[in-house]
Simulated assay, not measured.
Amino acid sequence: MLAKPHRITRGADYRATVRRGARFTGANTVAYVRLNRDSDVVRFGFIVSKSVGNAVVRNRVRRRLKAAAYEVLPRLQSSAAAGPGIDIVIRALPASAQVRWATLHEEVSGAADRFLRRHTTSSRETRRSVTTEGNVRP
């Protein structure tokens, strides 16, 4: 179970993450990830619409996604320890109702890994392109 500090609870935070976050699409989920400069923790949010199934199916999918997020959380926390927080919203697609937990875990973990690679690569390139005088290299 994700502790309260690791959950996105406000609608405005969901909207900001979905609208401005990087999108990582899988066969069963779509993950939106963004840096949150107002926070220093990793937070997760889940969107499971009625197209996934009835209430029982939706809750099962949401619980599986939460369990996958709980396992990915320590890796994300260690990468965000010195910087801004990370907000992740995971949208379950209708196909997610029929897949196993391991498949959902792979998609959540894969989205986190791709974001971390993109984030660390882009920050490294930015550091390389700026000289000590503040001029940009050609």
Score class of each variant (00 low, 15 high):
R64F: 11
A69E: 00
L73F: 08
V41S: 07
T121W: 04
G45C: 01
V72F: 07
I88W: 01
Y70H: 03
P84S: 15
G11N: 08
R10L: 01
K66R: 13
A16Y: 02
A69D: 06
Y14L: 05
V48Y: 07
R10V: 09
R58D: 15
A68Y: 05
R100N: 10
R60F: 15
T9Y: 00
T121P: 01
S79N: 06
L76V: 11
N59L: 15
G21H: 06
A92S: 11
V48D: 10
A67L: 02
G110R: 03
G45F: 02
E107W: 06
A55D: 12
A3V: 04
A102D: 13
A22T: 08
G53W: 13
V48F: 11
D40Y: 03
V33T: 09
V89I: 10
S96I: 07
T121Y: 04
G26F: 04
G110T: 11
R15S: 07
A97W: 09
R37M: 12
L93V: 03
R137V: 11
E107T: 02
D38F: 04
I88Y: 03
A12M: 01
R118T: 06
W101H: 13
K50C: 15
E125V: 04
S122P: 02
G134E: 11
I88V: 15
G83F: 03
L65A: 11
N135G: 03
R75V: 14
L35H: 09
H6L: 02
E133P: 00
R118A: 15
R60W: 15
S129P: 01
F46Y: 05
R10H: 05
R62P: 07
A67Y: 03
T9L: 07
T29G: 12
R64N: 15
L35W: 09
E125C: 02
S123K: 00
A97C: 06
G134N: 00
K66V: 01
N54R: 14
I90N: 10
E107Q: 06
R124N: 06
Y32N: 07
T121D: 12
R114N: 06
P5G: 06
V41A: 09
S123Q: 00
R37G: 09
L65H: 07
R20A: 09
Y32F: 15
I88T: 02
D40V: 12
Y14E: 10
S51P: 08
R15D: 11
